[in-house]
Design a protein around this nucleic acid. Structure first.
Lengths: 145, 145
DNA sequence: CTTCATGCAAAACATTTGCAAAAAG
DNA sequence: CTTTTTGCAAATGTTTTGCATGAAG
């Protein structure tokens, strides 16, 4: 699960991207963060690589999305958020903190994909079905007895 | 389905909001648009009410969300989008145009809510389950034969 | 070498704020 | 009258752009 920068170079190559320190730093930050805004990536990545600008972070994130190395997520926060996991999975989305948490539920996925197996949606090319459990992180200790 | 401004005044009152020309114009625009960004609402609403500013549109939209007259939607567009329909329903979301379309599928809703009926999510207060069919509007006429 | 990626600083957007003036009830 | 709501213009925060420089292959 833990890639060193040699591994990362291979990954980038496999996705048809030149390997640069900036790209490695951004991807490493995303691996650590899981889900993150451009700014969060910039904060973390630029700690380990002083020669990194926000503009580059945006560039890199965009190129990663293009090749499918990252996925852009929807938010109700007017900000861009990325997901390092590109396989098909659900999310818990906290509207208070605008944070995401992977929520793996294969049974649900199966249910939904069965439901759509023979459905055709007129005039629409379906890419994926995005299920978000929207709510609020519970404050630690306030759990009902 | 078509409210005149007397009806709208009643609706606003019922939601505990003072009735103003601006609020009526914004809600009327939302009724017409269904799903819209602040800017879209401003464009349409200010056509019929010259004394309306963007700041007010934001104010009004926010107050409508507060009382539950509108719902904020997630987008991958770094912009705020509103939905005039607040009942529980799915959406088609076009990533190219950032447009929404209601997708009513009671069978799917039932399936999903049954699935979650007895599930508890640790540390999370669930508000709603948001299902988006993400893809692209098909270009007219490009339908496979 | 040649191409592509990065840094930089400015621009473009979208949204929010603070406060005085105006309107609602 | 009193309380909200609105308009205005400025400020904020995020993302994008253009172009010269620098690095990757």
């Amino acid at each position: 699960m833990k890639e060193n920068s040699t591994d990362l170079r291979k990954i980038l190559r496999r996705y048809g991207l030149k390997s640069t320190p900036q790209r490695i730093a951004v991807y490493t930050a995303m691996k650590e963060l899981g889900h993150a805004s451009a700014d969060m990536v910039y904060q973390l990545a630029s700690a380990g690589l002083t020669t990194l600008t926000v503009a580059t972070v945006y560039n890199v994130l965009e190129s990663f999305v293009q090749v499918g190395l990252l996925q852009r997520r929807m938010s109700s926060n007017n900000k861009m958020y990325m997901d390092v996991n590109t396989y098909n999975h659900c999310h818990l989305y906290c509207e208070e903190t605008n944070t995401y948490k992977d929520y793996d539920d294969p049974e649900l996925m199966l249910l939904i994909h069965d439901h759509f197996r023979n459905k055709r949606i007129r005039g629409f090319d379906l890419d994926r079905i995005d299920v978000q459990l929207v709510g609020r992180k519970r404050i630690a200790g306030s759990r009902a007895k």
